[in-house]
C-alpha cells in the first residue's frame, strides 16, 4: 500500500538522480579501479587457498578426521558476511583497501572451498583408480586424476566468485575498506544524488564488462 500511496515521493527521489553528475569522473574511475583490485586480490588469494582446502573438505579424498574440522572451519568463514569481516579488519589493519582484500579473501575462501570440494566429490573414481593402478602416489593421483576432471568447474566457480566479489567490494567500501564504496556511501549520506547516480552507472558498466569478459575466458577453458 505504501508503495502506491507514496509513489509521488518515489518519483521525486528518482528525479533527483538525473541528470547524473560526471564532473569528478576521473576520481570515480580511480576508485573503481581500486575496487577492482580489492576484488581481484581477494579472489586470487582465496582461489590459491581453496585448492588445498577444497580437497581437504572432500570426503572421497581424505578421512573424516580431516574433512570434518576443515568443513567446520570453512562454514565459519562463509557464515560471517564480508561486511562484518570488513568492519573487523578496518579495526585491525586500518581504513583502506587492504581491509577489503582481507574481508573478501576470508569469506570467498569459505565459499570456494565448499564449491571446489563438491566438484571433487562428483568426479568419476574410475579415472583416479586408473592413475593409482600405475603405481602413482596420492599427490600424483590428485594432479593427474582429479584436477583434470574438476578444472572446468573450478574455473567457472572462480570467475563467478570474482564477479560477485566486484559487487561485494563496492559495498565493503561503505564501512571504510576502500574503493568506490566510500564515495558511494558519502554521496548518499550527503544527499548528492546526481553524483550517486554517476557512481552507480560506473559500477553497472564495470560489472557488465566483467561479465562479458569472463564469459569469453570460460568458453576458452571448457
Amino acid at each position: 500500500m505504501k508503495i502506491v500511496n507514496d509513489a509521488g515521493n518515489m518519483l521525486e527521489l528518482g528525479a533527483d538522480f538525473f541528470p547524473p553528475d560526471f564532473t569528478d569522473i576521473r576520481y570515480y574511475l580511480e576508485e573503481m579501479l581500486i575496487t577492482l583490485h580489492i576484488a581481484l586480490w581477494g579472489t586470487l588469494f582465496a582461489i590459491i587457498l581453496s585448492v588445498p582446502l577444497g580437497l581437504m573438505c572432500a570426503e572421497n579424498m581424505v578421512p573424516a578426521w580431516i574433512y570434518q574440522p576443515t568443513r567446520r572451519l570453512m562454514d565459519a568463514a562463509r557464515a560471517i558476511n564480508e561486511m562484518v569481516f570488513a568492519m573487523l579488519f578496518v579495526v585491525t589493519v586500518g581504513l583502506g583497501p587492504f581491509a577489503g582484500v582481507m574481508a573478501l579473501f576470508i569469506h570467498t575462501t569459505g565459499v570456494l572451498a565448499k564449491l571446489f570440494s563438491e566438484a571433487v566429490e562428483a568426479i568419476d573414481p574410475g579415472q583416479v583408480e586408473g592413475v593409482r593402478a600405475t603405481g602413482a602416489n596420492k599427490l600424483e593421483e590428485i594432479v593427474y586424476g582429479v584436477i583434470p576432471q574438476v578444472l572446468p568447474l573450478w574455473i567457472s566457480f572462480s570467475l563467478y566468485r570474482f564477479e560477485s566479489n566486484v559487487r561485494s567490494a563496492t559495498v565493503v567500501g561503505m564501512v571504510g575498506a576502500g574503493g568506490i564504496g566510500v564515495i558511494l556511501w558519502e554521496s548518499i549520506r550527503g544527499f548528492m544524488f546526481p553524483q550517486t547516480c554517476a557512481v552507480m552507472l560506473i559500477i553497472i558498466v564495470t560489472v557488465s564488462l566483467l561479465d562479458f569478459g569472463s564469459q569469453r575466458i570460460r568458453k576458452h577453458f571448457i
Binding site: 579415472q127 583408480e129 600405475t134 603405481g135 602413482a136 602416489n137 586424476g145
Partner: peptide, 21 residues
C-alpha cells in the same frame, strides 16, 4: 604396494583413462 603396482599393467573394462587429458 606402489612399487608393485608400478610393475603391473592393469587394464580396466571401462578403460579408466583420464578423459580430459
Amino acid at each position: 604396494v606402489r612399487a608393485s603396482r608400478g610393475q603391473t599393467g592393469y587394464i580396466f573394462q571401462q578403460f579408466n583413462l583420464v578423459n580430459r587429458l
